[in-house]
Write a protein that binds this DNA or RNA. Structure first.
Length: 637
DNA sequence: CTTCTCACG
DNA sequence: ACGTACGTGAGAAGT
């Protein structure tokens, strides 16, 4: 037995690495005793994050409590694997920090499935997120093991991940190759692997004590664990990548990027992604920038000097070279890409638009699809079920929540199962409805219940019976603006409507729906009274930034809408639909459904996504596509 | 590592 | 007193 004594919070702890049969027996008798005392902390070390690639391997499985961490060398096979699996079988409860990752790893490489592990798990990362969901860059502690341990357990606890990357470098390995390349017997690797479970075990009582003190309900914790499990099952299933189509598209995008780059080169731009080169070229062509086409001035007022604006100082406003500016130069409509005939098209701008788009779509989408696909040609996007401050979910590797929606070519890469079709079910205007429910907006609730189009209804309230399409559009923009907390100027900029019209609509909006302002003011008061935290309708803590208190209304609405989605996922699993579920996308659930059952299943999904929120119907509509996701965006297959 | 840009709801 | 668009992930360039 290798033993590594250490100290955590002034107390001696020990990391033990079994080497013999006797060592493993000692481990198991420890486990039997520890299991009687409480949950067993569990963790894994692996060769990387690419769980589903054929080179991925499970290296160690760690078990521990507040005093002892055991590192079982799974990689050595035989008895080591046998005892790890015996322990996974035996333990009554687990503590895992970021459980979905370990669930999926163990699901793939041991005989234990997510369905078995999840009901026995408390995820300390989820618990921490319910106390404070903010990321470090938002002023929070973040939900990584290191900052949480430093806060709750021991300020001098080592940065087990960060310190290891330094060791990787000393072994001539990198941040990515180190996890696979570090020798299994490396002392620090084993010590830190064991410390991770000890820290997790110590984190748990501190977190639960704080949750209780803050009055966060147990039901919310259980709800989040259910959602995390459902999302892990979706991740395990993944989606079929149409390999032939994706390779072909990848090549086509590559060729497009090259040919448009060649055109840009004729105007002296060697790199279309270089802002500096573009600015110089367009400037030489005599292009001029309009107000509003400059970056915001981030300098402090005392740093500012007049007339230094254009190309120099750090943080000073400088001309933007973004999609909007390029489209104006190219005389193309920003949305549709159609010719405007308002000016002489700048051919460089057009070439830059096309080459940037092709290059980006290739690197961000087709290449990532091909790089992350498993041996069976499936992608397994990581679903973080509780990511944003509002608990909104996020999806990475690849970021399938952000595939282009105006063109079907990228979504066309992803397929429903054989003999299945894609079914996408969206909530109808969920954020507006949630706002109506939470703020008890009388007229809005009446309109929704009467089945009226909300934006038309608002337009009638503001402009009277003779309102036009243009009026409806302004009201729609104002509706979004209200949900986001925007002002007249921003809404005018976003919608392209004249500011006077927007101001008039905003005033009309407030007269028609006075409850929204009251609700917002109440939330802001609540936040101030509770140390800059509001509490959502589901009991979720919503930290508010002192300098952006107005954003609390959006947090309340966005998080309640997210919880509608979460409840829908749970309802769908209960209805036996989990095997069809593929992705949650904020206000939508994407499913792969057997062709022969598509109508029944679609109706069932809609039922699972329908409920009442304080007298407001939350409703959803299913759209049945063909085999590819792109078919729901215009593709013909 | 930060900033800009761009994709989504 | 007044007004503030919300939440993400990811690549490329530049410091």
């Amino acid at each position: 037995m290798k033993t590594y004594p250490y100290e955590v919070a002034g107390q001696p702890v020990v990391v033990k690495v079994p080497e013999t049969y006797e060592d493993l027996c000692e481990f198991f008798s420890w486990l039997v005793g520890a299991d009687k005392r409480g949950p067993i902390a569990l963790d894994t070390e692996t060769t990387g994050l690419d769980i589903y690639s054929d080179t991925f391997q499970l290296r160690t499985v760690q078990f521990g409590d507040t005093r002892t961490g055991w590192v079982l060398h799974w990689e050595r096979g035989g008895l080591f694997q046998h005892y790890a699996e015996r322990a996974l079988q035996y333990a009554t409860r687990f503590l895992i920090h970021n459980a979905p990752y370990d669930w999926c790893v163990l699901d793939r490489h041991t005989r234990f499935k997510i369905e078995d592990l999840a009901p026995r798990t408390t995820d300390t990362r989820l618990v921490a997120g319910l106390i404070d969901p903010r990321q470090p860059q938002e002023g929070g502690r973040g939900t990584a093991l290191k900052p949480l341990s430093a806060w709750y357990v021991d300020p001098s606890a080592p940065d087990t991940q960060g310190d290891l990357t330094a060791i990787f470098r000393s072994l001539k390995l990198t941040k990515t190759t180190g996890w696979a390349g570090i020798p299994l017997d490396h002392p620090t690797y084993n010590l830190y692997a064991g410390l991770d479970v000890i820290l997790t075990a110590r984190l748990y009582p501190a977190l639960t004590a704080e949750l209780a003190m803050l009055g966060v309900r147990d039901k919310l914790i259980a709800y989040e664990h259910e959602i995390a499990r459902i999302c892990a099952v979706m991740q395990r299933k993944g989606m079929i990548l149409d390999l032939d189509y994706t390779r072909e598209l990848d090549e086509r995008l590559g060729n497009d990027a090259l040919s448009y780059e060649a055109q840009a080169l004729r105007y002296g731009v060697a790199n279309v992604n270089s802002r500096a080169q573009l600015l110089e070229a367009f400037h030489a062509m005599g292009e001029e920038w309009l107000p509003g086409e400059f970056t915001d001035d981030k300098r402090e007022y005392w740093q500012r000097e007049p007339d230094t604006a254009m190309f120099t100082e750090k943080g000073a406003p400088s001309p933007k070279v973004d999609k909007a500016v390029l489209h104006r130069f190219a005389d193309l409509d920003f949305q549709t890409g159609e010719r405007l005939n308002q000016r002489k098209p700048n051919p460089l701008a057009e070439a830059v638009i096309r080459s940037k788009r092709a290059g980006k779509w290739r690197s961000a989408y087709t290449q990532t699809f091909l790089d992350t696909a498993d041996v069976d040609g499936r992608i397994h996007p990581f679903i973080n079920s509780m990511q944003a401050r509002t608990a909104r979910m996020s999806i990475t590797r690849p970021a399938v929540q952000t595939l282009p929606s105006g063109d079907s070519m990228i979504r066309r890469c992803l397929l429903a199962e054989d003999e299945h079709v894609m079914v996408s079910t969206d909530f109808a205007a969920v954020e507006m409805r949630v706002l109506a429910a939470l703020a008890d907006v009388k007229r809005m609730k009446a309109a929704i219940n009467a089945g009226e189009d909300l934006h038309s209804f608002t337009a009638r309230m503001v402009y009277g019976g003779g309102f036009t399409k243009k009026h409806r559009k302004i009201c729609k923009g104002v509706g979004f603006g209200k949900v986001y907390g925007g002002g007249a100027a921003t809404i005018a900029r976003q919608t392209g409507a004249p500011i006077e019209d927007v101001q008039r609509a905003l005033a009309g909006y407030d007269r028609a729906y006075p409850e929204i302002r009251k609700y917002s003011a109440g939330l802001q008061r609540e936040a101030y009274a509770n140390g800059m935290v509001a509490v959502s309708v589901t009991g979720r803590r919503l930290p508010v930034d002192r300098e952006r208190v107005y954003a609390v209304t959006n947090y309340a609405v966005q998080s309640a809408a997210r919880d509608c989605l979460g409840q829908s996922l749970i309802n769908m699993e209960e209805a036996g639909l989990l095997e069809y579920m593929r992705l949650p996308i904020h206000d939508e659930v994407l499913c792969s459904v057997p062709y022969n059952e598509r109508f029944d299943v679609a109706r069932e999904i809609e039922r699972c996504m329908t409920f009442d929120l304080y007298g407001v119907p939350i409703e959803a509509e299913a759209e049945i596509g063909k085999r590819s996701w792109g078919s729901l965006y215009g593709a013909d297959v």
